[in-house]
Amino acid sequence: MNILVDMNLSPRWVDLLTNAGMKAAHWSTLGPANAPDAVIMAFARANDYIVLTHDLDFSAILAATHGDKPSVVQIRADDISPGAIGKPVIDALSQMAGELYRGALLTVDPRRTRLRVLPLRNPDRFPP
């Protein structure tokens, strides 16, 4: 599993993910710090990365474009440090690996984990 850690998360996430057996890179080592989210998404898609972020803009991009890749993992917590929420994130990544490989939006917060398969569709506007 290849994880691209967004700029809004500490580079310490790379060590945590690597120690859990995943390949991880912080965006600061791959591209410009001020790159728009769309550029990061395009890079992740082209290079088979899953984006790990604290930013809701990535899910908005998926919803607006009905994109099926890259998968996005959103951390929704007050304390987004690896020491505070790292274990639930690692557990969720491991448990949902199949869905993430196929394309999903995974939201992890201290109380629960939610998964939506991509592409995101509004059930009222886009019935199955």
Rank of each mutant, 00 (worst) to 15 (best):
F58Y: 15
N47G: 01
H66Y: 10
N19P: 00
P70T: 11
L17S: 11
A64C: 07
T18Q: 05
D55I: 00
T18I: 13
A35F: 07
T29A: 07
A25H: 11
A38W: 06
G31Y: 08
D68P: 04
P32D: 03
K23D: 14
H54K: 14
D55R: 08
L56P: 02
D37S: 09
L56C: 05
S71M: 06
A42C: 01
F43N: 03
A25W: 05
D37N: 11
L52H: 12
D15P: 03
V72I: 15
A46Y: 01
D48C: 03
H26N: 06
T53L: 04
V39H: 10
Y49L: 01
D37F: 06
P32C: 05
T29R: 03
K69T: 13
T65F: 12
K23F: 13
G21M: 06
D48P: 00
T29K: 03
T53S: 15
N47L: 02
T53Y: 15
M41T: 07
A38P: 00
L17V: 09
L56N: 05
W27Y: 11
H66C: 08
L30M: 11
S71Q: 09
D68G: 12
P36L: 14
F58D: 03
I40T: 06
R45G: 02
P36R: 13
N34Q: 15
A35M: 05
F58V: 00
P36F: 09
D15E: 14
S59P: 01
M41V: 09
A44P: 02
P36W: 04
H26T: 02
V14S: 02
A63V: 10
L62H: 13
M41H: 07
I40D: 01
D57E: 13
S71I: 06
I61D: 10
A33C: 05
W27S: 03
N47H: 14
S71T: 05
K69C: 10
R45Y: 00
L30Q: 10
D37M: 05
A33G: 08
S71C: 04
D55W: 10
I61R: 11
K69H: 13
S28Q: 12
L30D: 02
A42S: 12
A20C: 03
N19R: 15
R12K: 13
A25K: 15
A25G: 04
V51Q: 07
I61F: 15
S28F: 08
A20N: 04
L30N: 03
G67I: 01
A33Q: 07
I50D: 05
L62K: 02
G67K: 01
D15R: 14
V72A: 10
L30E: 07
I50Q: 13
L52S: 04
I50C: 15
T18H: 01
S59V: 07
D57R: 09
A35Y: 07
A64K: 14
M22G: 05
